[in-house]
Nucleic acid binder design. Structure first.
Lengths: 186, 186, 186, 186
DNA sequence: GATGAATGAGAATTCATTCAT
DNA sequence: TATGAATGAATTCTCATTCAT
């Protein structure tokens, strides 16, 4: 009976995650504004009411999705920094490459992430999730580097958001000098 | 009769602008998602169909509003730079103060501006408007300063967007060291 | 232009009243529980959204309907008393006949009226409307008859509500002795 | 094994009764309209499907609840009359006090009882239950008192239902003269 | 030119009930 | 026996837009 209950629970959790994943795909494609019970259910290929069964409301679904997305982002950033450390430095080349990728092939995902930022600006309960990747980085550097780090991270955010409104996504070559400028030692 | 037509036209233009202004207030308050014919008409205190009469659709209203907003922003930035030039330098104090203001008393407006960015990311026709203030600045500096300028502007954008997800808006004092770091000469 | 506006307004008011009338028919047939946008719109033979256009919500529609119903009832009662007065007395025969009619051919309407009572019990804003016919009567008798009147009216209400749960509606003959008892002089 | 089955059955019956009691509380609070599987299950603090498991449908649950409620009412009335008889008379004071209590502290319960009446008016299968307390009383008096009893009971019902739509519940003092009038000997 | 009336499309959400375990 | 998962139907309500005046 315990196992039975667990089995049911597990199935429910699986569907919950499927819905969250579908929601993220919808956000990438159409933005937060495109998230409705209908669109999400269609994307997840589940009945419309499945989304209301698993989430108290559209708001809860959005929160769950954006928290899940933020967790992924934090993990990615963590490994990136870890790799950089093991090599002894964070290269402008690598950063510029990542930015170009975020603005090119992964453009949808990047837009979704910034919609998270903006949603978090209006909804305090989302802020911890939205700040998570900044916090991960901050906890990884020496305290005396904090100003440099904040300036660097602000620059990254700015380059990304400005890159999103370019007609053509900037290339790594175009971005590199600016990244170098942001990374130059004092 | 000519005068009459002009008068009518002027009246129509006035109402158009009132609707645009109301739309911006709605965006500041509830975000782009909160913009509907009803909410805008209520905010402008005009009949509901007035918004469809003066604008081909909700989309056009949004575009007109965001262009108007971007124009204001470009003008502000222009004068800020002009003042800085006449004094010979752009002080970190002044910039930090402006950022703190944008994240404090003018928080709603700042959020609205970043929603413009994100909307422009999804709708190419909005991009020229969204880029205008960046272009104004770019046209005002010497070409050899371009990298430094881009880094600086990216940093400003990043500080603003990150400041929007802080639980408490950062103060000018907190922002100043980062601004100084971004402005430091090569 | 004034006439034009009046014409439109009049048309709207007419449809408003049609919807109210349809709602009352629905309540008579299926009870307050049967009132939905769909059922009312179908009964009134108007599009579903017509009911939401003319009434802020289902609640407002219910209130408007029940107020309209209560007004009718007060008017009927007024004329009944007026006729009784002009004849010098209120006969048990006539009252029993009215009760039998209310429980027979007009059973649906009578149920609707008691659903109004009960709805008013839960919603203070409906109480003045629900009390109207009692007030009309109270204002028509000499103050020293008040106790007798209240007892009489209470008895009428009781006979009606009890008559609604009989399997066969009581006849005027069955009701007459009780009415006589209620009307007997001190 | 017999004991086990009995134990299970007893447990099932207990839960059934808990659900019925919860339903009555829901009706007192929100009216018959507020009765859904969800609200009842939440009030009873049992799983949602427990209500469908123990009752064939919502209708059955409603019937069971209202029968249970009517049974209670009949019992109360029985003892009241029994006490009155042993004292030789039914005092207007006591009746007025009971009415005031029904309209004051027990207002929710009284509303629930009249919703039963009205539901029974629409659903024949509920009528025997709704009539039970009237039948109990009728069986307790001499046949030649029947008219007086019916008039009295009608008056009680009328005073209660009219009392439910007063803004302030009437006091025993206000009700007493009317009760006396209804009770006065021929 | 301007606006109230009107409505089809679709959104969020609730619900009774079924089913598998 | 009991219950979490699931879902089709229906409900309330919002909205962009059209149309007649």
């Amino acid at each position: 009976m315990k196992a039975q209950r667990d089995g049911r629970k597990a199935r429910g959790d699986r569907r919950r995650q499927e819905i969250i994943d579908a929601t993220l795909r919808v956000i990438e494609r159409d933005g937060v504004a495109g998230v409705t019970h209908r669109t999400v259910a269609a994307e997840a290929d589940v009945p419309t009411t499945s989304t209301t069964y698993h989430f108290a409301g559209l708001n809860d679904l959005l929160i769950a999705t954006l928290i899940s997305c933020a967790k992924d982002m934090a993990t990615e950033v963590y490994w990136m920094i870890d790799r950089a450390r093991s090599r002894g430095s964070l290269g402008a080349d690598e950063v510029a490459g990542l930015l170009a990728e975020a603005l090119g092939p992964r453009r949808g995902r990047t837009m979704a992430e910034y919609e998270l930022y903006l949603l978090a600006a209006r909804r305090p309960e989302l802020r911890p999730a939205a700040r998570r990747w900044l916090d991960v980085l901050t906890s990884m550097v020496r305290p005396d580097d904090l100003v440099a780090l904040r300036a660097f991270l602000a620059g990254i955010d700015g380059l990304l958001i400005q890159g999103l409104i370019d007609d053509e996504p900037p290339t790594a070559e175009e971005l590199k000098p600016v990244v170098e400028y942001l990374l130059r030692p004092r």
